[in-house]
Design a protein around this nucleic acid. Structure first.
Lengths: 244, 244
DNA sequence: CACAATTACGAGGGTCGTAAAAATG
DNA sequence: CATTTTTACGACCCTCGTAATTGTG
């Protein structure tokens, strides 16, 4: 009863063939592979038997790849690369399955979002990254991110978004100053945003005055792949219930 | 000391994974693979260990591919196809290395060429095929033929050609007829070519009269890949010395 | 209770490494 | 005579199959 079924080819043997092609002699290849020369010699014969084709020109003292062998070795190298790629891709998928990558154009939205995701998805790793809209959107489509925070609803196929509150620029004024005294008060005006204030608490001795001019405030949107809607349901629920 | 080196992945294990994907249960897949269920069960665990990734959702009574597993099985199937293709391509090359495929637009040139090749290249199989110029030229470039006989020198990159004599259409006249009696002699004129006459010997009781009108004769050219010039040296020498 | 997956265990085959042989430049 | 490939031989590991176990619908 034969050990193997229909496909008797083994990747490890192809690895040996590729090594022989690189090294040129059995001795050198065996040394690179950390096996004995006889083992390599046997493996090469076995490969020829399995393929039913001569791969080498043999003299008593010398062994070289013939035309068949060169082709086989080249294809083998390619196949080994594909096998390696298979493993790496599966591992990458597994990793992406147990991490939620979050990208954002500004740090503020992440302050509450990242901790919320951590507790909503226990056992998942949360990674956050700041970047520009262009990069984030591309990364979302490529799978680098599962969730990105932008300053407007993106328009891309397979991508959805929900509003995620906003942020308004504020003046930071000494608390005892009347508003009208501003111009005389200081040559060093200070800025902040409402979200910073809510996170860090009021700045000591100052009051935050939101600027209501359009353009001085930002509205955030959380975007995700439509295919991930169910997976991210808990996160979206949090986002929708978030007071912007 | 481990049995295998850096690449521990085995094609036979991937074959099992692909079978499991097709069949859905270990029992069915094992049956298809002609191995026992325990063997298959162990192999699947081994695959997971080697990849360092879970591929299945396991209950006591049921085993299913998870997202990782589905990807792995799909890529495995692709890889197995590539491995199969590798063997087939190497075998095809080997076959082409020990056969000389000859194509021609007409049978006459093959009458002398094929036997000549047989004796010039002992141990080689000679295959001949009749087809049109278009097909032959494409086949020459694709490697289906090593040598093709055309009615003119081809103009294609990587292709060379040498003249290979010609063939002229003849009338076959009753031997005792003077040329002027032709029109009265018969309502069934007969044709042949000079090459046919030389091959078969003179037709009994007739004389062959070559027709010298342009268009009534053909000049043959033997075309081959420039890369094969050395391999075909003996054949080309015969062709050049061939009295057209 | 039939079915599916796992664990236990002994048998067999394949590959390995060491050692010796043969052949070449 | 050093280098390279091949053959011989014994050992070990790995996988296999059979049989028994556990858990499920």
């Amino acid at each position: 009863m034969p050990k193997r079924g229909a496909y008797m080819l083994e990747l490890y043997d192809l690895e040996k063939l590729a090594a022989f092609r690189r090294c040129g002699t059995l001795v050198a290849a065996a040394q690179e592979l950390r096996i004995s020369q006889p083992a390599l010699s046997r493996a090469m014969r076995k490969l020829e038997d399995e393929m039913g084709v001569e791969l080498f020109t043999r003299s008593k003292n010398r062994m070289e790849l013939n035309e068949n062998g060169v082709l086989a070795a080249e294809l083998a190298e390619k196949l080994l690369g594909d096998a390696d790629s298979l493993v790496r891709r599966v591992r990458a998928l597994d990793r992406s399955r147990r991490t939620i990558g979050v990208g954002s154009v500004a740090p503020a939205p992440l302050w509450d979002l990242a901790p919320a995701l951590s507790s909503l998805y226990p056992g998942m790793a949360i990674t956050t990254e700041l970047s520009d809209t262009q990069t984030l959107l591309a990364g979302l489509q490529a799978g680098t991110y599962s969730l990105v925070v932008l300053t407007g609803p993106p328009d891309a196929p397979g991508i959805e978004s929900v509003p995620f509150g906003g942020e308004r620029l504020c003046f930071l004024l000494p608390a005892n100053y009347a508003f009208g005294e501003l111009l005389r008060a200081s040559s060093l005006p200070a800025f902040t945003t409402d979200r910073v204030q809510r996170r860090s608490g009021a700045t000591e001795g100052r009051v935050a005055v939101p600027i209501t001019d359009p353009g001085m405030s930002v509205d955030y949107f959380a975007a995700y792949r439509t295919a991930d809607r169910r997976r991210l349901a808990a996160a979206l629920k949090f986002i929708e219930g978030y007071a912007g």
